[in-house]
Design a protein around this nucleic acid. Structure first.
Lengths: 185, 185
DNA sequence: GTTAGCATGTAAGGAGTTACATGATTTT
DNA sequence: AAAATCATGTAACTCCTTACATGCTAAC
């Protein structure tokens, strides 16, 4: 019913692009793919699969049903595979180098599928992400220097650690951008 | 109406504990306090303030209204201040050294208010957070070694960077725990 | 034969955002 | 007097989780 269009949809399409999978297995791959960043529950995954079926992006395949008698209404594994339309949708989502690709929640997934993303889109996403983080550094540092109320020691330490984390990610992005540039030759 | 009991409530109570503030200013302090971790919009803040008023944790003060004629129904700044009950509630929330204090979303806030938290609660939260992260490291590494399908280069790099980030936070926690220990003498 | 893990699903609800709507105050 | 910023608020909506409910399959 909803159009979703979030991290989950992209992840599912991407994983099914590699090979057909059933929900349970899909979830494990999902949480491996996204690593320490994110995890999804079945309560999100199954409705999402349903919705993708309804939208014609994937189709269900029930291997067990064909093998056994049809009278049993038993539950079985449902293997999902991408349709041609689904593949197209996936490519469209990957081709989007707009802000939605470099925000906190979605950058990870987009990056995970960089292997199937055009080099120029990769570059624009990396640069977008970098300036996003630099903006944030500026904002925090500005707010910090503007602040007159002296902060608690722990609050300060949290701040420091937060800034350092962001700076670290910027360095990581710099490295990646450099590598991408080198590979263009 | 809802009980909320989340990051926002704790942050608001903590900030108002330092000094009375109006919503707009409160939001800026909030986003400074939480630094690069989190940001809240007015759409969350104002309903939360209403709810805290209803619960008797804070009270409204409208400075302008008293100064000027009462016939004008004009909008004015609303300064919120903590009640005795609110202070108690804040201390109760700070005294909770359970899992809810060391999850991703809430650890930051709890840490920011460590200056007002008992030393033993601080220690239990730091240790809880650390074992939470170590569990995650184990899970990711286990899933990683169990995986037979060779991963995409970019996916691998994302994974590596994610692991490194978590390891870095563990080292930070180790350092903090060491410092806390040293201060106990 | 029972426990543990595989497998699918739904209903209710939490926590927050976005977009909108309005008005006051300060700066240029 | 226009523009920017300060200031408060609401309604609709999104995305996801939790808790529940069910059943299959392998291992011990």
């Amino acid at each position: 019913m909803a159009k979703s269009s979030g991290v989950l949809e992209l992840s599912v399409l991407g994983l099914l692009h590699e090979s057909p999978l059933h929900g349970y297995e899909l979830r494990k791959r999902l949480n491996l793919l996204l690593g320490s960043f994110r995890a999804f529950s079945y309560g999100s995954l199954y409705p999402c699969l349903k919705q993708l079926v309804a939208a014609g992006m994937i189709v269900e395949d029930r291997p067990d049903v064909e093998l056994r008698g049809a009278e049993t209404n038993r539950r079985s594994k449902i293997v999902y595979k991408l349709t041609a339309e689904g593949k197209e949708r996936f490519q469209d989502l990957l081709a989007d180098a707009g802000p939605s690709a470099w925000e906190d929640e979605s950058f990870g997934v987009h990056f995970a599928f960089f292997g199937r993303t055009d080099a120029d889109v990769r570059m624009r996403i990396l640069q977008g992400r970098r300036s996003r983080l630099e903006e944030r550094l500026d904002a925090v540092r500005a707010a910090f220097s503007r602040t007159r109320t002296r902060l608690d020691d722990y609050t300060l330490e949290l701040q420091r650690h937060g800034l350092e984390s962001v700076e670290r990610e910027v360095r990581w992005l710099n490295e990646l951008i450099r590598t991408e540039d080198a590979q263009r030759e």
